[in-house]
Structure formats: structure tokens, C-alpha cells
Nucleic acid binder design. Structure first.
Lengths: 328, 328
DNA sequence: CTGTTAGCGCCTTCAC
DNA sequence: GTGAAGGCGCTAACAG
């Protein structure tokens, strides 16, 4: 008799009906203290744990939130998940996690899986901005929060860092410290963050066009892409502005291999301020975004949508972090 | 009529019974090609997605696997999750993720949550080796795989790296390259990996006791703990052997701040070979464990338990990775 | 205040 | 080969 106990078993032992058991356990209706105690005692004795599957079927609410992200191994995404999970847990939600592994077709497939599991809500970091799969999500009728992208449709909540102003702050600092020639090593320009950062860089260059010179290379948000792009550079400028920290790490490594002194010969900057940015030698000047907070805010938005059908889009502030990889 | 379509709706449109719909969709019983086609067409038209909650209740199988780990933000754990997820996905499983945030009482609480969700199996990286909560898992009767720990009970599968032999390999290399004084900066000695690594270090020291001298400090697996322990060192030895890479990063940073030349003045080694170990300056000599593979093997063990009730414990090989932070 | 009953969506005997 | 009916465990009417 290893079968898991149900309210039926409790009812039998406590000598009451299953309805009474349900009422005691959910506490939404009055039950005499006497019966209540008998039920609780029986439940405790059996080590009863409610079957959330059955409850979910009955109530049309599973207390699960689907999470669809490109890659859980990436510290950026895992920090978001952590922030979100901590918040959602307080409201009794558990996370169903799926990684698209960077493939768009998996996004669609996994969306169906999550939907199939009847998640109460959905959080996603889309592979591309303006992804058509966002429309599909909307049609599903499940509350959703898009992370690291800003959606203007009024029925979808979203949260992202203010990449544009962050990059502008960084550029202003570089200009103020007498950097005049630049290289921008971009990450994926299809992503929201990629677009915004690149745009900010361009805007500043145009604005200062009389005193600066620059070149722009496109790559991906990876260490190896950083190395590659650096090698393609026509000349080493005053400052190499990288699309994110990973790219900057690649650049730092390769520059040092080529015997450049940083920041004396050239300044290098990143974007994100991941955990390791302060551990490199020299430590990296970068723009901090608070991923953990991003996950938390996303969870908050989802809860609001779930409870009050309120939607909102939030832009998070960034912070310029000046360290040893830039002179000035 | 925004309600999600069910087999009832399909049955009505296709003009068949719900039993026939179910049979076509599950393909386990013969249905005439004619009806079959009508059902499929109707299902496609409605964009039908099975309700896995209902199915789970009926079949007693939810196709979900519970994952209980200390901290998803830690790259070590997230890589494991990634490896496991990729494998489990092929078998139609989705992951329910919970982080214990390093608190033992949450391990118990979250275990109940996962159980409540009727997960088909469980994977966990326990906070401490010989954790009493493992006994509770066993009683629940849910197949489980313990990761980064080796469980000898015959009814629990487990997988871990061979930390002991990995550390021995590293020590042998250091001895061969004429290091004679050592400091061991340990991570948490309550964990399986902490114990094994420390034990290997001790065993080598005892074995070579005539020619070596050493000291041992205990801390945690963090960057800041590395810095702290370094400061407490009575003297800077030939080699500082760190419990893991994070500790080594702290040590590298602090040593450089104190103007030590690495590896000329002192060698520093880590353990794990996380992504950033090759990006430090100098890059870190360490012992590689393949987390991704660990997650994958864990998933494989779970599938075997699920399908054939087979249990097993597997020790994964490690690899010595010699880089610039050690002389020789 | 408590018990009886229906049914959430699906699968699976059991008849035909 | 196909349909009708019961039930997985639970909650929410509806009676009493």
C-alpha cells in the first residue's frame, strides 16, 4: 500500500466527507474546530500533499509559469531566471523551464509544450526583437512578459534595460577622457539590446563627427567573436567599444597576446557587468545592467497581469562602471 | 468562443466519438484511414494542443522532471541543467525548476512542491553530502538522480566527477614541476566535491611529507572567500591550490594587487575549468570537469530508472588543464 | 455547518 | 474498428 494518500483517505480516517477535508485544507469555508482538528491530524499522519495536477484540472490554474529563454547556461539569462523565481515562489508559482538553444523553430515548438502544460503565465527572452512568435503567444491568451525587449502592443508587458542611454553615458565618458578614434564591435544587431547599443554609438558619432573617427564591425555576443572582430580591425583606435562584456573579454585576451598595454595603448569597454568583469586584468570598464532585478520586475509585472490584468512596460536604469581597462 | 479546443470539439467537427479522437491522436489503436484523416484535419483546423494536465491526471504521468539545485545563477549548476534539459527534451520531458538558495529548509519545502506537482522524476544537486533530505526523497517513491555526489544506496542513481583523482593528478603535476610548499584554499568541506578534493590534497601531502610543507584554510566556493583566505595565509608558498576556480580568481586578483608575479613568484591553480578560466590573465591552470556531460549523464540515468527501473552510479573523468598560472 | 454530487479533459476498459 | 461510460483527485455548486 505505497499509493499516495488523497483527500479520500483523509476523509475515511477523520470520519468526515471529502468536501469537509477540502474545505479544511483550503480554509475558504467555515468548518467546526472539532472536525477541522480531526482532518488536520489525519492529513499530518498520512503526510498528505495535495495533488496539484488534479487541482489544476479542476480550477483551471496550475500555479506554474513557463520560462522560455535562449540559453540557461548564459549567466545573463540564468540571473534573470533566478530573480524571477525568487519572486514568483512567494506567490506559490513554480517555473517550467525551456531553452530554445538559439533556434527559432524551437521557440515555437516549446511554446506549444508550455501551453500544453497549461501554465498560468509566460516569461520569455525572445531570440530576436519583433519576433513573429510573440504574436502567437498573444493569440494563446496566456499572460506574458517579454524580457530584454520592449513591446509596444498594449496587451503584453515587457521589461528591459535602457541600453541606449547606457551606451550614451559610456560614450560621453570616453569623449570626456579624450578618446577620439573608436571601434564598435557589435553583438547580434537583430536583438533589441544590440540595436539600441549600436544606435546610441552611431548617434554619438554623427553628433561629434567633426572630431572623431570610427569603424563598426558586426559579430555575436561571444568571446570568440570578440577575438575575430579584433583581428579584422583596420587599425587599433583610442577606444574599442564592445557590444557586451563577453566580446570585451575576447578583445582583452587577444590584445594582450599582441603585446598591447591596456589602457595605455588602447581603452576597452564592455556592456553588462557580468560577475567576471571585475576579475579580469585589468578589470573591465562597462555599463551595468541589473539582470537579477530585471527578472524580479518581470515577475512582478506577470503577477500584476495575472491578478489585475494590468500591463506595463518598464525601462531599467543602467550604471556606468569605470575600472582599469580605460584610461582617464 | 475563445475557450481552448479539446477532443470533444474535434469529435464534433469530425463527426466521430471522443474515443476515436483519442485513439488517432495517440496512435496506439487502429482507426480506419478515413476517420483518421477527418480527425487530423479537424485537430489541425482548431490548432488543438492536448491538455497535459488532464492527461497527467488520467495516466498518472505528467512528463515533467523536478530539478532542485542550490543556485541557478551559478554557472556550474546552470550548465548541468542545460545538459540535462537537452537530453530530457528528446524524451518529451519538461523541467520544473527550483532553487534552494543555499538553505536546507527550502530543500524540504521545495521537495514537497515538486512532489505535489507529480513530477515523474527528480534531479538534485544536494547542498550537503549525506543530506537527510535524500532519505525523504527515497520515501516519496519518485525516481531520483543525485548530481555531484555519489550515493551508495542501491535505489538511488548518482553521478559526479572523480574529484579525488583529479586533484591527485594536479598535485602530481605540481610536484613534478618542483613545487614544494603548498597552500590549499578549500571550498565548503561539507560538500562531496569539497571533501574529495581536500582528502586528495591531504593524502598527497602525507605521502610526500618528507619533502613538502603546507597549510590548509577552509572557506566557501566564492571569489570573496578566495581573497579572504589569501590574506590569512601565513606565507606565500610555491603553489596555491584552490578548491575551485572562483576561489582561484579571487586569489589571482588579490595577488596581483599585492604585486606578486604569477607564475614566477607563485603558481595558482583552480578546479572546474569554468568558461572564464581561460580568459584570466594569466589563464588559469585547473582541472576540468564536464558539467554539461554531467547533466546529460544524469538525465540518461533518470530515463533508465523511469523506463527499466535500473539504477546506477557513475564517476566522470576529469582532465588536467595546464595554462599560464602555474610555472613548469 | 456538513455531505452529496457533478465534472474539469483525457484515456481506457468494456460492449457492440 | 468504433462508441459509450467510468474515473484519475480535486473543488464548487447545491442540498440539507
Amino acid at each position: 500500500m505505497q499509493k499516495h494518500p488523497g483527500i479520500k483517505d483523509i476523509a475515511r480516517i477523520a470520519g468526515v466527507s471529502i468536501a469537509t477535508v477540502s474545505r479544511v485544507l483550503n480554509g475558504n469555508s467555515y468548518v467546526s474546530p472539532e472536525l477541522s482538528e480531526r482532518v488536520l491530524k489525519a492529513a499530518g499522519k498520512l503526510g498528505y500533499q495535495p495533488n496539484r495536477i488534479a487541482r489544476g484540472l479542476r480550477k483551471g490554474k496550475t500555479n506554474t509559469i513557463g520560462f522560455l529563454i535562449p540559453d540557461i547556461e548564459n549567466p545573463f539569462f540564468s540571473a534573470i531566471v533566478k530573480g524571477a523565481e525568487n519572486f514568483l515562489r512567494k506567490y506559490g508559482y513554480t517555473i517550467l523551464l525551456c531553452s530554445s538553444a538559439g533556434k527559432a523553430e524551437r521557440e515555437d515548438e516549446l511554446l506549444n509544450v508550455l501551453y500544453s502544460h497549461k501554465v498560468d503565465g509566460l516569461m520569455t527572452v525572445p531570440l530576436e526583437s519583433q519576433n513573429p512568435y510573440l504574436e502567437r503567444i498573444e493569440k494563446l491568451g496566456v499572460p506574458v512578459v517579454v524580457i530584454d525587449d520592449i513591446i509596444n502592443q498594449k496587451n503584453i508587458s515587457s521589461v528591459a534595460s535602457d541600453n541606449y542611454s547606457g551606451m550614451k553615458k559610456l560614450m560621453q565618458y570616453l569623449l570626456d577622457t579624450n578618446h577620439r578614434s573608436f571601434a564598435f564591435l557589435s553583438g547580434d544587431p537583430h536583438t533589441y539590446s544590440g540595436k539600441e547599443r549600436l544606435q546610441a554609438f552611431r548617434d554619438v558619432m554623427v553628433q561629434e563627427k567633426e572630431k572623431v573617427e570610427y569603424e563598426i564591425l558586426l559579430g555575436t555576443y561571444t568571446f570568440s567573436s570578440g577575438i575575430e572582430m579584433l583581428r579584422k580591425l583596420r587599425k587599433i583606435p583610442d577606444a574599442i567599444v564592445c557590444g557586451n562584456d563577453m566580446i570585451a573579454f575576447g578583445v582583452l585576451t587577444e590584445l594582450q597576446k599582441l603585446q598591447y598595454k591596456i589602457p595605455n595603448d588602447v581603452s576597452v569597454t564592455g556592456f553588462d557587468d557580468v560577475l567576471f568583469s571585475k576579475m579580469t586584468n585589468p578589470p573591465l570598464t562597462t555599463v551595468r545592467q541589473d539582470y537579477y532585478m530585471m527578472g524580479r520586475v518581470a515577475a512582478q509585472l506577470l503577477i500584476e497581469d495575472l491578478n489585475y490584468k494590468k500591463r506595463n512596460s518598464i525601462l531599467l536604469k543602467t550604471e556606468l562602471v569605470i575600472r582599469g581597462s580605460s584610461r582617464g
